[in-house]
Design a protein around this nucleic acid. Structure first.
Lengths: 112, 112
DNA sequence: TCGATATATCAGCGGTGGGTGACACACTCC
DNA sequence: GGAGTGTGTCACCCACCGCTGATATATCGA
């Protein structure tokens, strides 16, 4: 459904829509205030869901839902430590976070 | 509307919701396929709206709208070059793009 | 076992934002 | 001036997504 223009300036080609799926997926994940805040809070170490929910003043089921999204993307890990088996602690996967930032770099950094 | 939990594990405080406005604004901008693709395409230099619209197979008014959003955020610049005063050429503001990536780094990079 | 706490999952609702179409404006060429 | 092209703006519609409430599961203490 493009506006067809028969004569584009100086016939500039290389006009295939670039593949932005990977950086787009990262941006969509970060484009929510609660998910962004969750990642920011967890920079100082692991936290359980109830802590994070209290910090954000949100229902824990909502926070759990956002954490699941981040976990599916690999940005955070969940564990139930032996010292506190009742709670689930989430922590950042720093390697994955670095990789995600690198993906965004494909949009925001200059070419090559 | 938080799930109030009277006894958080080991009284972990510092539970104020962090300020994520700036990186969030960047992420929201990038979290659209057309805007992400626009930034990616413009890495190889300035393009006019009709070129970009053709590349994305989108209506030019829609592309113009997305470019306006990017321009308001400072990520791109618009100009009407003397060689082709009929068209408006958009180019990336690399300094602003670097700054935007740095903002996202506050979410994805380790603390301090 | 029963109750309480913590987390997870899901259907349904409502607000937000992108696409579309109509229109206005700028510029060039005839 | 008038036609054609390129760009910008806006109201409207609709799909998508986050929040909510209900429910299920897990773990521990009494």
């Amino acid at each position: 459904m493009a506006a067809e223009s028969p004569t584009l300036p100086e016939l500039r080609l290389a006009l295939a829509p670039p593949d932005v799926e990977a950086p787009l997926a990262v941006a969509v994940l970060l484009a929510d205030r609660n998910r962004a805040a969750l990642l920011a809070i967890m920079r100082d170490g692991p936290h359980c869901v109830c802590e994070l929910a209290a910090a954000l003043d949100e229902h824990s089921n909502n926070v759990s839902n956002h954490l699941a999204r981040l976990r599916e993307a690999g940005l955070v890990r969940a564990s139930r430590p032996a010292a506190d088996t009742r709670r689930v602690y989430y922590e950042r996967n720093e390697a994955a976070c670095r990789a995600a930032l690198a993906q965004l770099g494909t949009l925001l950094e200059p070419l090559g």
